[in-house]
Design a binder for these strands. Structure first.
Length: 265
DNA sequence: AAAAAACCCAACCGCATAGAA
DNA sequence: CTTCTATGCGGTTGGGTTTTT
């Protein structure tokens, strides 16, 4: 795999990217490794849901949407990395022929691949095809009906795209749990979450201190509980893949246990 | 060796939908 | 029934890396 994988996460070059801030004061742009770790940690605590709350309580200064995207497209441990295999490429072509630009649906049929990844692949793929086709046409006949619509085939090619059926809404690919159906109301849930945080000595206002402590642990290793200390070689990824991270339960008892561990640090 | 082009991928945006209030 | 909020999806963009000229 090429090394560009980490280009945006490792160390954002100082400058415009790093200081990009959305109107609401939220950070934008590439994620740092520390942010990834924080996010992974809080997803572990609260599960893959209530992203706004998670974003708020983590102190990440990102939108919930941004957090979710980062998680789903990059941090999720089930993701495969690297280039698509020939088999996968064939599958993408096949499924796209069947379902059109229903990327999330295609992604569901390809475990370990995200809709974004497939989308990106397809974009490159079709662009190449168009280019080749054009080149061939130019070689063959000069009067070729020069296709100026490079992009149309992508957006218009989907017979199935018009109906975003209800089935596609709640079926997030590669999720461990989603919270639409069985969650408490946002407000009461947030209260409960706050209660848990305070119980563990992690008040909404103190999360920064707490996070700093965690980050220090990441940085210096020694003092942190083992579950908080990823191997130095591939920190975020290995951390995310560790069993301890994925044994999460969804109920309050689990939360309390985990918070107890956090509080003990 | 340098410049340009192509490739690749992370991240953002806007819209649609479901569920709660 | 209407409004609001959270979430998910598809389209698009920006910019770093690699390859080609």
């Amino acid at each position: 795999m090429k090394m560009k994988q980490t280009k945006k996460t490792s160390a954002p070059s100082p400058g415009k990217q790093e200081e990009a801030v959305a109107p609401g004061g939220f950070r934008k742009g590439p994620w740092t490794e520390q942010e990834d770790m924080k996010l992974a940690w809080f997803v572990r605590l609260f599960g893959e849901r209530r992203w706004d709350f998670l974003a708020k309580v983590s102190g990440l200064n990102r939108t919930g949407k941004s957090c979710r995207l980062r998680w789903v497209n990059y941090l999720h441990p089930d993701l495969k990395r690297g280039r698509m295999s020939p088999d996968e490429e064939r599958l993408v072509v096949d499924l796209h022929a069947r379902w059109g630009n229903r990327w999330s649906r295609i992604a569901k049929a390809m475990p370990g691949r995200t809709d974004n990844e497939i989308k990106n692949y397809w974009r490159t793929h079709t662009r190449k095809l168009h280019k080749d086709a054009r080149a061939a046409a130019a070689d063959g006949a000069s009067a070729a009906s020069a296709s100026t619509t490079t992009s149309t085939s992508m957006s218009a090619a989907s017979p199935a795209t018009t109906s975003s059926s209800s089935s596609s809404t709640n079926d997030n690919h590669n999720h461990l749990h989603h919270g639409h159906g069985d969650q408490e109301t946002a407000a009461s849930q947030e209260q409960a979450d706050n209660q848990l945080l305070y119980t563990a000595g992690i008040g909404m206002d103190s999360h920064l201190l707490w996070n700093d402590a965690i980050m220090d642990s990441y940085a210096w290793g020694a003092a942190a509980p083992s579950m908080l200390v990823p191997p130095p070689s591939s920190p975020v990824w290995d951390y995310c893949c560790s069993d301890s991270l994925w044994g999460i339960g969804d109920d309050e008892v689990e939360y309390k246990k985990m918070l107890a561990v956090a509080g003990a640090s």
